[in-house]
Design a protein around this nucleic acid. Sequence first.
DNA 1: TTGATATTGATAATCATTCTCATTTGTGCT
DNA 2: AGCACAAATGAGAATGATTATCAATATCAA
Lengths: 128, 128
Amino acid sequence: MTKDLALMNKSEIKVIGALKRQARFTSAQSVYQLLRKDGESTGLATVYRTLQKAAAKNAVDVLRTDDGEALYRLCETGHHHHLVCTSCGKTIEVEGSSVERWANTVAKNHGFRKVTHVVELFGLCAKC
Amino acid sequence: MTKDLALMNKSEIKVIGALKRQARFTSAQSVYQLLRKDGESTGLATVYRTLQKAAAKNAVDVLRTDDGEALYRLCETGHHHHLVCTSCGKTIEVEGSSVERWANTVAKNHGFRKVTHVVELFGLCAKC
DNA sequence: TTGATATTGATAATCATTCTCATTTGTGCT
DNA sequence: AGCACAAATGAGAATGATTATCAATATCAA
Ligand SMILES: [Mn+2]
Ligand SMILES: [Mn+2]
Ligand SMILES: [Zn+2]
Ligand SMILES: [Zn+2]
């Protein structure tokens, strides 16, 4: 679900392009290193700016490590959640329609509006 | 579900005690300030150590702000999730048995073991 | 009391993220 | 092309939460 290349500026093409090559959630710092290894001159600030803008418009997904570092991932489908291997980082995108319903019901029951939810699953994959 | 006072050392009594007085999720830095205002000499490192140890044993719940800061809260019941007002911080503890089942099923279907989940709801409470 | 051990607080160090700002690049217009 | 002006960029400094150090204290059993 990557935005059309024509709609991306050069930085977005480089940063999001690098992210696309990663199968797992990746930090801004890592993306920066990857670009540098590829000989790109992209600055760290630009990496942060680009990833955060993309995250704001839900073009990439974000999650936080236990110590608070932001990790980004370019995902295929629209709204979904993740099942992440805590050992190798393997990530599976999962549907959660039953969770969506539950979240909305709970929120409504308590009079909350404009509800969002954070739902992520972690564990050890079959190989690990 | 606070641990018996007799089982806590002095630092735990002070730090967890201060946290107990807060209705909403609170940062380590804030807890430190609160203690100082009360005239306590507790050090910042001790606040971090105590909160993290408590979180490790699930004695307190943790969540992360959008910019990665860790927030702690002393909760009443055992395993549960939260519905948090993004404006005033009001927090409601919610049950999620249907979510628990969903999480386990999804994990099993993909061959994952030792699965944990992060499930938090955010929105605007009735007053805000 | 004493010596081993665990805890503590002050302080320095880390490090991801944000901020600043001079420079470069893109864009519309002539 | 040449020009004015806005947006994007990168280098480096600044920020701020979290961690690491370490000397000073508190604990406690013998
Ligand atoms: Mn969902
Ligand atoms: Mn649960
Ligand atoms: Zn794995
Ligand atoms: Zn509210």
